[in-house]
Each structure stands twice: as structure tokens, then as C-alpha cells.
Design a protein around this nucleic acid. Sequence first.
DNA 1: TTTAAATTGTTATAATATTACGTATGTAAT
DNA 2: ATTACATACGTAATATTATAACAATTTAAA
Lengths: 137, 137
Amino acid sequence: MSSNHTHNKKDQTLTKNQRIVLNLLQDSGEPLKAYFILDSLKKEGLNSPLQVYRALDKLVELGKIHKVESLNSFIICNNSNCASNTAFTICERCGKVKEIKNNNLTEGVNELVRENKLNITRYNLEFYVVCNTCKIN
Amino acid sequence: MSSNHTHNKKDQTLTKNQRIVLNLLQDSGEPLKAYFILDSLKKEGLNSPLQVYRALDKLVELGKIHKVESLNSFIICNNSNCASNTAFTICERCGKVKEIKNNNLTEGVNELVRENKLNITRYNLEFYVVCNTCKIN
DNA sequence: TTTAAATTGTTATAATATTACGTATGTAAT
DNA sequence: ATTACATACGTAATATTATAACAATTTAAA
């Protein structure tokens, strides 16, 4: 049983559907839409939207993936120990999405949240940008 | 021609469909979904989803309303001179949505954006909270 | 090993949003 | 006033995103 994916222990507890959806998102690195995932995994045995949505829901719950709300898409979490707080940059020109992690911006936001003593349980931040590649061109 | 709505000059340039959609969102103060708006305005002459979506698109473009992405809903802008940057709190218990404006949090975010010299053109921030009312109960 | 919880597969349908097309309207330049 | 242009309109059809309902099965734990 070899695989070109690196899984941690916790991945072993995923069900088959959850695992193949996670692998696809992992390999892609880009945000993918539910029905694209469905089409891509037909050959793996996924037949209905609900199978995809159920896997996605679970993976979001586990913090392994995130939903990019304004794109109706799902992306692998690139921050292994991230909580439910998410922050993304989305390039307005090319659509590229990056998860922002552990930088001044997210630290600053966390501090602001603490300072302001809002009862914030989690947040989702979407920053629209012109990415470096697009900026040059 | 009297009205219980307060309109500024610019509202005069809105078309009929745009105006009745704006008025509904204004009177409601809550985020409303497109098809709810459609149902509500049947009697005013709105017949198809597209009429609603076109009005909503224009109003978003004008900055008079905002889309709350994670709710697929639209809410009146309560900050008359706001740009395309938006920040909301969303109560996880009761669903109440408030636009955050001109407070420490948004000022802080603006400063972080400046400091980090990201090519950010606009942002949408959604903070999930337990609102004061729900916190008590 | 029996019970409870979670997951599965399937069908159907709900909810959200856009495409395509032709018509009408308002505005500005000729 | 007439043309040209952009914007908005109305309507029908369709695409996209997501969930409900139900029965069967697997899994984990007591």
C-alpha cells in the first residue's frame, strides 16, 4: 500500500470518501468547487453531490480544509495546527488564493480581537489583492 | 409624493427596481436573501430572479449595500461613506449581523494592511461572535 | 455482543445565480 | 431632431450550489 501522499496519523481515521477528497485538495493546492471534486472523483467511486458535501463538511470540521466563502470553493489548510480562524488573499486578476498564516497581519488581527474584547469565536478574512505575478504584468 | 424613507440625492438616480430593493433592505436592516427579496417585492412588480440580482449587483457596485458572503445575503450599508471594505460580526447563535465601522478593530485592520504593504484592494471580514443578547441567555 | 453513533449510498429537490435574447429607455453628440 | 451609445428592462431557460429524507451498513464503545 504505497502512496505519494504524506499522511499523518489522524488521516488514518478518515473514511475513504473523506480521504480521497482530502487527497485531491492536497494535490491541487488550489480552491476547488464541490462539483469539480465530484467530477474528478467519479472514477474513485463518488456518485452524488451529497457524498462530496458530507466529506467536505467533515474535513472543514476537522480543520483540514477551509471554505473560501466568496468563491464557494474549498482549499487545503496549509497550516497544520490552525484553528477555525482563516485568512486568505484572493488575486482579483488571476484568482489565485493563498492562505495567510502566522504573519504580522494575522497576528495583528488576533491582537485586535483580544484588545477589543469582542466575543469572537472565529473569523474568516478575505483580502482581495493584486498578486505579485499579476502586478508585474 | 411622500415617503417614510430618507433618501439622499443619489438615490434619485436609481431606477425603480434598484430603489425598491434598496428600500426593502433599508427598512429591514437585516441581511436578506435574493429570493426572499423577490417574494417580498412581487407586488411591486418584480417577477424574476434576474431583476433582483441585477438590482443587487448595481447597489453593491454603488456601495449602498453589501453582500455577506458566508450567508449568501445582502444587507444595507450603514456607513454612508464606506468604501468596498466590509467587516461584519455574525452571531453564531441568533444569526444577527452587524456591520463594524470606524472602530478600533477596523482601524487596526486598515493599519495592518498599510504596514504590511500588501497590494490589498479591498477586504471582506466576517467575525463570528456570541452577541451580547445571546451571551446573557 | 448488543447498543449507539457515524457513515454510506441513492433519489429527489431546494436554493442560489447566470446566460441568452430581444426590447426599451435615457443621454450625449451630431 | 436624429443618430449612436450605454444602461436597464422583461422573460424564459438553464446552470450551479447545497440539502432533505430514508434505508442500509459500518464502526466504536460499553
